[in-house]
Computed example of a mutant assay.
Amino acid sequence: MSEWKAFTVEIADHVARVTLIGPGKGNAMGPDFWRELPEVFGELDADPQVRAVVLTGSGKHFSFGLDLASMAGTLAPVLADGAKAAPRTEFLKEIRRMQAAVTAVAECTKPVIAAVSGWCVGGGLDLIAAADIRLAAADAKFSLREAKVAIVADIGSLQRLPAIIGEGHLRELAYTAKDIDAARAERIGLVNEVFADQDAVVAAAHAMAGQIAVNPPLVVQGIKDVLEQRTSPAVTEGLRYVSAWNAAFLPSTDLTEAIQAVFEKREPQFKGE
């Protein structure tokens, strides 16, 4: 495997373990993450020795989501007053590049099991929504946080979570941007099972991956391919729609206020402008 800045990858007994390592605090998702994620899963997909993948985070948390500080340059051109077609088009391309990075996880022919402990926020939730199976530690907390920062979530949660948790639960999480704990996540079907702590959830994910890996690999891959046909066309259409929507409507006074409030560590004051 290649060397990575945002991940470590270990392979043993036909199971690959992919660990988010930042470098942002709480494994926040910066430029290295978005560039490397499709490369990592492309290599795993092409490796015949890999039959299942465990995806987890280093340290106490899975991921704090988008690294606003390191990704600010992506937003700046389209947030400029009177942004014209050129910066909006470039922003559209950037959204679709980030969408494609997470979609690489969903399209990996090997089943992916996410093992979550600590915070799983925003982009972290997008990422685990693209996994096949999600397991959690008892301290895990989940949040579809984008509404709090004046953004329509556009990397996959709104498209993939309806099939996982249902419309009602998704709308509640998306509209309120509230946090939920592991117990609530299990009740609504976001995670399959909750374990005592981080070590236990990672061990459980590896045990499940091992159960998958002893089955005929092409049959397992065929099952995943057949299952994906039920949802992937709607996900693809939804991702294209939301990327165009955000390229057109994301710039706002509320978004600028939300970003300033994050850096100033205060509550934002939204005006609907």
Results as ranks from 00 to 15, higher is better:
Asp154Gly: 07
Ile155Glu: 01
Gly156Cys: 09
Ser157Trp: 05
Ser157Lys: 03
Leu158Thr: 01
Leu158Val: 00
Leu158Lys: 07
Gln159Leu: 01
Pro162Thr: 10
Ala163Ser: 15
Ile164Thr: 12
Ile164Val: 14
Ile165Phe: 01
Ile165Arg: 02
Ile165Lys: 01
Gly166Met: 06
Glu167Met: 11
Gly168Ala: 15
His169Arg: 11
His169Lys: 13
Glu172Cys: 07
Glu172Trp: 08
Leu173Cys: 14
Leu173Phe: 08
Leu173Ile: 07
Tyr175Phe: 10
Thr176Phe: 10
Ala177Val: 09
Lys178Gly: 05
Lys178Asp: 02
Lys178Glu: 02
Asp179Trp: 01
Asp181Leu: 08
Asp181Ala: 08
Asp181Thr: 06
Asp181Cys: 07
Asp181His: 08
Ala183Ile: 05
Ala183Ser: 10
Ala183Val: 09
Ala185His: 04
Ala185Asn: 05
Ala185Pro: 06
Glu186Gly: 11
Glu186Thr: 06
Glu186Leu: 11
Glu186Phe: 07
Ile188Lys: 08
Gly189His: 10
Gly189Lys: 12
Glu193Cys: 07
Glu193Asn: 13
Val194Gly: 00
Phe195Ile: 09
Phe195Thr: 13
Ala196Gln: 15
Ala196Met: 13
Gln198Asn: 15
Asp199Lys: 14
Ala200Glu: 03
Ala200Trp: 02
Val202Pro: 04
Ala203Gln: 12
Ala204Ser: 13
Ala205Cys: 11
